[in-house]
Nucleic acid binder design. Structure first.
Lengths: 299, 299
DNA sequence: GTCACCTCTGGAAGGTATTTTCAGGCCGGG
DNA sequence: CCCGGCCTGAAAATACCTTCCAGAGGTGAC
């Protein structure tokens, strides 16, 4: 019995097609049919059992196993695993054109992929563009603050609320305002040692700038979270945190990516404050979980 | 030779780690050990037989098979194939860069990097784990809806508001409710052709389940956006959209990544509806920009 | 505290897939 | 025409996967 060893190489990576071509001359006719099928449709063959592949190629199980051996695998089982890997690999190769804008007739799966990709991109941009010195200063101010007021309207208003919710959970006195009148009324009461945060993508939202200006003039420490650091809001901000500005399109309003960006900044502020006030933050967070437990029903 | 083709959803793509995290809470201890091993070292596990994996995890073959089933595969054999594919996949896209948890003494720059990475991961997991058929059905229901009511409390409440805001901007009648009493009162008024959406990470938030149940019983089409598709909320949902569940830590509450995940899902719903109602959505969106222009000051 | 019930779990039986064995057939050479 | 070697596939043997079942462990009710 002659054993043909296909080189001392380990099983085989993704270069299966090449290996098939190299070894084809040393194969018998039946084995060539099997090898051909395998190289031609890895994904399809990975779904077949040894019997199935034998039938497909008009050969026998024994031949399939022999072919697998010749290709360098211990048996068909391992060839099949490699085939599955190869299939996954070359599927990942054909990357969908996620860079394109979302079109009206895009299938829903593409919409998901494109949105996810864009938001990931926004996060990366934001992280890269965030000034850690400014962020550190903002965190320090927040951690030392007696109370914190956060101003934002529309989409930014939700970000403001998000931050307020989280700060409250670690025992930090914070409140979000969406009503411009109440916001100004509130800003008047601020003093030194208080912090005011304005969140506005455009940097020119009057309803948010106004309360920040008032807070600034009353001596509070002011922070602006904005996509336009050159905007009007910056005039009244001690610390400016820049969010990224992604391109928008008809079907994807700017609010979408600015929100993602703002939330990351706000999360950073939160975690930074939690770090600095860990002694009180950790128990407060635990207590808030505890307090809400009974509001969840167990099935 | 028996070939069994399951008519339902396709087994599962490369979103295995996400699926493990999503389903982990509904798993038994032994199954969790298996799932953990599988998610932690796909390549290694792909090389093991049922018996091998059972020994490695200190469980039995039966448990391994049960876990494979729970993850959506017909049996261990298919899980193993998927694992091989996943291994090949993540080898090509090298650098898994497992981020450490955020520590109390992490410098602020690390906090930014880790948070950004985690949220990106959450987005990828969510996109991979989202059932596009369910999503499509939900979009269709929304697009045809007379009006839409969205229920969510705390962090999920903000997501609910975000969706409502956006739908309103394209001329879709939508409203978000955070007050449980008002939500139930509101749900009572729903009929067929109306849509109710419940957003809850835990899937067991009574204050949100209750209005959805009422809406469901009054004949409205109901949608659940939840991280626990096996939760109580699903009992009253016509369509279930699963958000991803990321590990949380002391300094990084679950609310953070669940929010990111929920927002992506909600964005997909929005864009889907905008596509389907493009004729009215596009002008409405343009008009909303127009209407807000004067609220921005030019410097 | 005890009991009943339900769920989880692993051992072992049962089935399927893979591997090995082996005998028959094809083909070229004598 | 006969012989010998090699290829080939059927079937046995084995390994692997799946299913079934009974015991263990925990939980809630009384």
């Amino acid at each position: 019995m002659k054993e043909i060893f296909a080189g001392g190489a380990p099983p085989a990576p993704a270069a299966l097609a090449a290996k098939v071509r190299t070894l084809a001359p040393s194969m018998t006719r039946s084995m060539q049919r099997v090898a051909e099928a395998v190289a031609g449709d890895p994904a399809g063959c990975a779904a077949l059992t040894v019997t199935g592949l034998a039938e497909l190629t008009g050969t026998s199980e024994a031949t399939v196993v022999r072919t697998a051996r010749l290709l360098g695998y211990p048996g068909y089982r391992d060839l099949r695993l490699a085939l599955a890997g190869l299939a996954a690999h070359q599927q990942s190769g054909r990357a969908p054109a996620v860079t394109a804008d979302i079109a009206v007739d895009d299938p829903i799966a593409d919409v998901v992929a494109k949105l996810a990709y864009d938001e990931q991109q926004t996060l990366a941009d934001t992280a890269a563009g965030l000034d850690t010195v400014q962020l550190g200063a903002a965190v320090a101010a927040l951690a030392a603050a007696r109370r914190t007021e956060i101003y934002g309207v529309a989409a930014s208003g939700l970000v403001a609320q998000d931050l307020a919710q989280k700060l409250l959970r670690i025992g930090h006195v914070a409140h979000a305002h969406s009503d411009p009148h109440l916001a100004v009324t509130n800003a008047v009461t601020l003093r030194a040692k208080d912090v005011a945060i304005a969140i506005t993508h455009s940097g020119s939202t009057g309803d948010v700038i106004e309360p920040l200006r008032v807070a600034f003039e009353h001596g509070a420490t002011t922070i602006a979270v904005t996509g336009r650091p050159d905007g009007l809001v910056s005039a009244y901000a001690d610390h400016i945190l820049t969010t990224s500005t992604a391109r928008e399109s008809e079907l994807r309003p700017a609010a979408m990516s600015s929100r993602t960006s703002q939330l990351l900044v706000v999360d950073c502020l939160f975690v930074g404050v939690a770090q600095r006030t860990y002694e009180t933050a950790a128990p407060a967070l635990a207590a808030s979980y505890e307090a809400l437990a009974h509001r969840h029903r167990n099935g």
